[in-house]
Design a protein around this nucleic acid. Structure first.
Lengths: 182, 182, 182, 182
DNA sequence: AATGAATGAGGATTCATTCAT
DNA sequence: GATGAATGAATCCTCATTCAT
C-alpha cells in the first residue's frame, strides 16, 4: 500500500532526500499510480504523517474522556506516547526528521495532535497549581519539559538493545512529578 | 562575510532546501566566490556549524577546568547553553534542522561538543549517585532529560516576546534537581 | 533516435565541446530523456562508438573466418575499412577526434577492434616474412603504416567531391605490397 | 616561461581539458599575468603551436633552398620531421590531440607549415612522374601516405624503449620509394 | 607590470510531475 | 485505472576572463 511504502522511505531518508521513484519501487507500483492517489509528493507526506497519528489520537481521546486524575493522566499519556513511538519507529523518525523544520509548513493533523496533548498537560498542571499541590511554574514550560523527556526515553530505546522502557518512564515521571510538586 | 550569510540562509531553510545561489545573494557576492573558499556546499555547511560552536566550546571548557560542584556545573552549564542558543538563534535552528537525522553525517565539532557536554553531565550524575545524594537512575537518561528540558526553554524563548529565561531555567533546574534528589 | 543524434553532434564538435543540450535538440527530445537511457554523457559516447563499430566488426570477423591469403586479406580488409568510414563519416570524425589521446580512456569495443585488425595484419606480415616473400621489416611498423595510408584515403575522400576510392585504395595497396615485397 | 609551461600542460591534457590555472601553476606565475601576454586561452594555444613549429620550418626551408634530388628531399625531410617530433614529444602530443579536430579552427602557422611540406612532396612526386621514374599515382595521396607513415614511426618510438628510428625510417622509405617506383 | 580574488555564464545531472498508451 | 517514458526547471559546480590592488 502506498502509505506504508511512503512511510518507510520517508523515515529512512527524510522528506527532501526521498525520491518518488523510491516510494514507487518500495510499493511495487508505477510512479504514475502514486500521482493518481496523491496530487504531489508533499501531499503524500502529509497523508503519511496524518494517518500515522490517528491511532495515537484515538488512544489519547479515550484518555481524555476518562476524566482521570492528573497523575494518572500523565502516567498513562506518557506511556501511550512512548509506546506508540517505540512500536512505530518510522513515525518517530519522521517526526525527528521533519518536525522541527518549518520548511514543509506542516499544517497537518499530527501537529494539531501534538499541540492538543500538550494542551491537556497544560490544563492538568494549571489545575494542580490551583489546587495547591503543584509549584507555581509556567505550565506550558512544564508540559513541554515532560514531553521532551518522554522523547529522550523513546530515543534511548530505539538505540538500545534491552527494553528498559518501563523503568525509564518511571524514572522520568518520578523526576517530573517530584520536581513539580510543591 | 560568507559564513554569516550561509548561517542565515541555512538557518532559514535547512541544508537541503538551501541553494548556493541564495547564499551568494545574501552575501552579495558571486556564486563562484563561495566555491573559491569552500570546496562544496556541504563543506560550507560544516564550516558554518563548526565556527558557530567555537564560542560555546570555549565557555564549556572553562567550566570544566573550574572543578565546580555538580549543582554549580549543572546550573552554569545549562545557563550557558540556553544563553548561547538564545543569543544565536540561527545556530539553534541549524541544530534543530540538521542534527536529529544523520542525513548529512556531520562529523563536526558541534556534534562532538554536544556529546561532551552530555558526558560531563553523566559523570556528575554518577558521582552524585555514588555519593548518595542522587537517586539510582540511569545517568544517561537523566543527563539527556535535562538537556532536552533546556532545549524546551530555548524553543519557548525564541517564540515568545518576553524574556523569561532566568525564571524558566530556574524552573527546569528545580524540577530536575529536586526530581533526581534522593 | 538518441544514438544517431549523439553520433552526429559528437562527430561535429568532439566530445568535450558537445553539450548534452545539443544532442537533445538534435534528437528533438528532452534532455532528461537522454539520461533515462544513458547514465552520463560519457556512457552515451561510449555507446555511440560501440554501436558504430559493430558493423565493421562483423565484416572483419567474416574475413578472418575465411582464411584468405595474405594479399587477399589485406585487399579486402583495407577496402572494408575504407568503405566503412567513407560510408560512415561521422564515425570517422569521432575516431579522429577522440582516439589519439586517451583523454576519455575509452575501453570500448572500438579500440579493441582497431587493435585486433592491426594484430591480424601483423600476423599476416610475420607469415610472409617466414615464407620468404616479404622483406625483413618490423611487422608492427608495417601493419600500422598500411593502416595509416588507408586513413589518408578516407580523409582525402571526405574532403573531395569525386569518388576516387577504388583507384586510391589500389594505389596504396600497390605501394604497400610492392614496398614490402622481397 | 609561459609558452613552455603552456606547451607542457596542453600536451598533457589537450586543449579543452587544460585549465588556465594549471598553466599558471606550471609557469609559477599568476594567472592574470598570462592574460597580460595573451588575450585568451585560445590565442595562447595558437602561440604555443606556432612557436613550436618554427624550428621545424627553418630546417625545412633550408632543405628547400638546397634543391636536392627527390629521393634526398624525401629522406632528409622525413628524417627531420621524425626527429623533430621525437625530440619534441610535447608538440607531437599537441598535434595528435588537436590537429584532426576543427573545433579550434587553427589557422596557424603550424597548419600552413604542414601543408607546405606536403606541397613540397607533391611537387617532387609530380616531377618524378613527369620524368618517368615514378608510377602514375595521385601525388597528393602519395605524399600524405608517406607523411602518415612517418607519423607511425614517431608514435612507435614514443611508446618504445629502444631507439629504432633509423631502421624504421629506412623501412618506411624503402616501402614508399620502392612502392611508387615505376 | 604582476597578481590572484571575484565573477557569472555555462554545463552535467537530478527529479517532481505529466500524459500517451 | 495503472503505467513508466518523457520532460525541463532547478541545482551543484567549473573555469575563462576581469580588475582592483
Amino acid at each position: 500500500m502506498i502509505l506504508n511504502a511512503a512511510l518507510k522511505v520517508f523515515a529512512r531518508s527524510g522528506y527532501e532526500a526521498t525520491d518518488v521513484d523510491d516510494i514507487a519501487r518500495e510499493a511495487q507500483i508505477g510512479k504514475g499510480t502514486i500521482y493518481r492517489h496523491y496530487p504531489s509528493k508533499r501531499d503524500l507526506f502529509v497523508a503519511v504523517v496524518d494517518r500515522g497519528f490517528d491511532q495515537l489520537r484515538c488512544q489519547m481521546e479515550d484518555l481524555r474522556d476518562k476524566d482521570a486524575s492528573f497523575e494518572d493522566m500523565v502516567r498513562i499519556g506518557i506511556k501511550q506516547q512512548v509506546d506508540f513511538f517505540i512500536n512505530n519507529p518510522d513515525y518517530w523518525r519522521i517526526l525527528m526528521l521533519e518536525k522541527p523544520d518549518c520548511r514543509l509548513n506542516l499544517d497537518s493533523e499530527a501537529v494539531r495532535l501534538h499541540q492538543r496533548f500538550g494542551q491537556g498537560l497544560v490544563e492538568g498542571i494549571k489545575k494542580g497549581i490551583s489546587a495547591g499541590y503543584v509549584k507555581k511554574i509556567d505550565p506550558v514550560l512544564a508540559a513541554f519539559s515532560l514531553m521532551s523527556m518522554a522523547a529522550v526515553v523513546v530515543e534511548k530505546h530505539l538505540q538500545a538493545k534491552k527494553d528498559t522502557r518501563k523503568k525509564d518512564i518511571s524514572s522520568i515521571l518520578d523526576i517530573f512529578l517530584r520536581g513539580i510538586q510543591k
